[in-house]
């Protein structure tokens, strides 16, 4: 295992989501799915079988009217940094933890569909393709060429839009730069958030806003007690929200 000293020099892409700002408008999820060629079925109401890389959970404080409050938790892949549960169980090396960026990726073609990772993931971020995706008529014209569509029988999940990382690097390399400028690589959800509730960047870069935000007392993560060190941080000023997130959601 690497010590903190060694890893701190590497990039660790992470995200902060300010749930006090989030209005649950689902623009992040729509942008994500449009970007990542996530298919739609005619009936999407079976949430245990549909495919969604980003889900928005509506949570209430459980109080009676008029003390009821609601909060929305957009939930991408948490990109666990430590003993990433899905990676440690995958028998096919279809999902990997990248040491250089901290991104947990998913190589669709390599997946054998055993769904072990789905059982292992504490955040339920992984989805299994129970059916072949169908793009009726012209709907397939919208498909993003940067992301390969999947097929029946494989698991898929949020990759922090790693193809956007590749594209950003592509452009940087074309300009003769070996590094990425700040905010050159941003996942589709973060770019789409109309409330500016989501921020994305290198958690190891002390100059970047995200590394400042994750140190704020407002920051928390989901199920921190599992010590998988997720790289998606939530922010809230409300105590009840912070308390709630640690136990269930």
């Amino acid at each position: 295992m690497k010590t903190r000293e060694e890893t701190s020099r590497l990039i660790r892409y992470g995200m902060t989501i300010d749930v006090d700002k989030c209005t649950g408008c689902s623009n992040c999820a729509v942008a994500c799915h449009m970007e990542n060629n996530v298919p739609c079925r005619t009936d999407e109401t079976d949430k245990s079988r549909n495919i969604a890389w980003m889900r928005i959970y509506k949570v209430t404080n459980g109080a009676e009217y008029p003390l009821t409050r609601i909060v929305y938790f957009p939930r991408p892949c948490m990109q666990c940094d430590h003993h990433t549960p899905c990676v440690s169980v995958c028998p096919a090396s279809a999902t990997n933890y990248d040491e250089l960026t901290g991104v947990v990726d998913q190589i669709n073609t390599r997946c054998i569909g055993c769904r072990y990772c789905m059982a292992a993931c504490p955040y339920m971020v992984r989805c299994f393709n129970w059916w072949d995706p169908v793009w009726v008529g012209d709907t397939g014209k919208q498909l993003n060429p940067d992301v390969a569509p999947r097929m029946r029988g494989v698991v898929e999940k949020c990759t922090f839009c790693s193809h956007r990382y590749s594209k950003a690097k592509n452009k940087a390399h074309n300009d003769g730069r070996g590094y990425l400028k700040e905010d050159e690589y941003v996942p589709a959800c973060v770019e789409a958030c109309p409330m500016g509730a989501m921020r994305f960047g290198d958690l190891n870069n002390p100059e970047h806003e995200v590394s400042r935000l994750i140190k704020s007392p407002r920051a928390f993560r989901l199920l921190e007690k599992l010590h998988t060190e997720p790289k998606v941080y939530y922010l809230s000023s409300s105590r009840w929200i912070r308390d709630m997130a640690d136990n269930y959601v």
Partner: peptide, 29 residues
């Protein structure tokens, strides 16, 4: 293939609603 808000537009400054983001599904509906 993709729609995003225009960051420098005077009206919405980058913010758009999910209908706009999914607008291409209407185009190719």
């Amino acid at each position: 293939v993709h729609i995003d808000g225009s960051k420098n537009h005077p009206v919405n400054k980058g913010a758009i609603c999910p209908l706009a983001t999914a607008g291409l599904q209407l185009l190719y509906s």
